[in-house]
Design a protein around this nucleic acid. Sequence first.
DNA 1: ATAGGGTTAG
Length: 617
Amino acid sequence: MAFSPPLTSPPSPESSPTPQQKNLIPWQSMRGLKQIHSLVLRSPSLQTPLILSKLLSFSALNPHGDVSYAQLLLAHIETPTTSMYNVVIRGLSLSRKIPASSSMLAYQALLRCSLCPNNFTFPSLIKALAECGSLWEGRLVHAHVVKLGFESDCYVRNNLIRLYTVCGEMGIAHELFDRFPERDLVSWTTLILGYSKTGRAEEAVSLFLEATDEDLKPDAIIMATVISACSKVGDLKLCRKLHNYIDAHNVESDVVTGNALVDMYAKCGDIESAYSIFKEMNEKDVVSWNSMISGLAQNGEFKEALKLFRRMQCEGIEPDGMTLVAVLNSCANLGSLEMGNWVRVYMDKVCIRANGIIGNALVDMYAKCGRIEQAMELFNKMTKKDVYTYTTMILGLAMHGQAKEALDLFSELSKARIRPNSITFIGVLSACSHAGLVNIGLAHFHDISRVYGINPKIEHYGCVVDMLGRAGLLNEAQEFIDRMPIEPDAFIWGTLLGACKIHGNVKLGESAAKNLLKLQPNEDGAYVLMSNMYASDNQKGDERTMRKLMKVKKVKKTPGCSLIEVDGMVHEFRIRDKSHPRRREIYMVVKEIDGHLRSEGYRPAMEILEQELCWHS
DNA sequence: ATAGGGTTAG
């Protein structure tokens, strides 16, 4: 029922050991290489193509090397060869910091020397271009590839396929894939990944099924790719089919495929299967833990997520930014501010900046835990804000009834040249709803499609019904529902019913309840609200009828639940809850508070079914 | 040449 707090103070980060530069043989460090280079420069007899090539490849390809040094070296070689250029181009493609344009410049230099690129030139060059999404240069190089007859080279072609997929040119990529019968596992994997990353996960999975018809033996890499695509499809049956396939075909699996499976089951809502795979993985890394923790959080199992995070710490696995996002998300939904603050302290200690997704998660945590000023402070400090950052803050302000601030932020969006999305409008509408700004809210609602070209979804209609209902415009709310282009769902009727309850409109409430019961006859909501409404309206007979009806239909009221966090522990309380070890003391204090409240003249609005509620809330 | 995990919701 409760989980223990994290370590009371975040562990200090271990100082990472510096690379043991001293133990390197001379030519494996740049220092040694430069010494040899100066020797070579002084004696022309040493300037043979072989020695120069060695110097080049050590500085360009060695992990302790320096590609820019290799570039300089190459520029001073009088009679360079294609393979010397290939080495530098490969070195450039391997280093992350260097832009694609330098690979392109090296390639152009090669052409200027009247050298001819070969099958080793293109893979690295195209890889560098793909890395940066340089479609224009990529097409140019592709033309050269065709001219020189290297399109049939599988390595070259796979890199071209990769280039087109990362540039979103799936049509060209697939055409290139189809045009040559000679394809290997990498060709399939690359194309499948392309479909998966461009939001066409179904096509990715069916492409894999196509691949299994050919005589290819799937490896761990293609499996991880297709499993990830499957998690995006969200079809549990398909997930199981894939899992069975792996077992049946004895596909060698590793941590990555295991992690992908955990994520896949979690995303498809089968948290038990996810957990059993997680448990049985004999090798786990930080991604395994992250997949499982965020899987729990994505399925609303926030307490379990925090529990698992605790275990992760006990096992000495260092969390990374992604872990913390899942933890913060759980804190936000549990109102667990102490734990959230702990994460912030931890972030400071290990120097994780509150920017990007993790910054957004922190803002959300503060807002949902009631610290709207701290959320705002952090929001203002964040240098890179995206639509998520703004949406989170707008929703937070709306939640706190600060409609003006929320609307101001919304108007800042266009100044920051950020396009709002459909969830941003949920925030805007709920801000208006909570502040009773009906006309402004309606104006924004109309702008959703007219100005922003977004099709309002049922959620947006729900916000408007809520806004009209809260303002007491119940008939308008009903009319709005009647005119909706979408079939009203249970949420819509529940919102109207709730508004009728607040404003005591029994007649309209009855019709809303009828509609709600048509959609979910076995849920307690409509019965409870109606019987409470009858009770407040002194319609004792109707109230009893409602409660009888619940009994006949075997509908039980789901117990409400309150939770608080004390010293990093989350405690839950339900009606007539006697499970807490310190229940006697707790209820004594509650009784005392209740006495104080009553002596000050407070009378809780108790309705028959809710009488005992005040004891846990 | 190819692989896994994250943020906002009526």
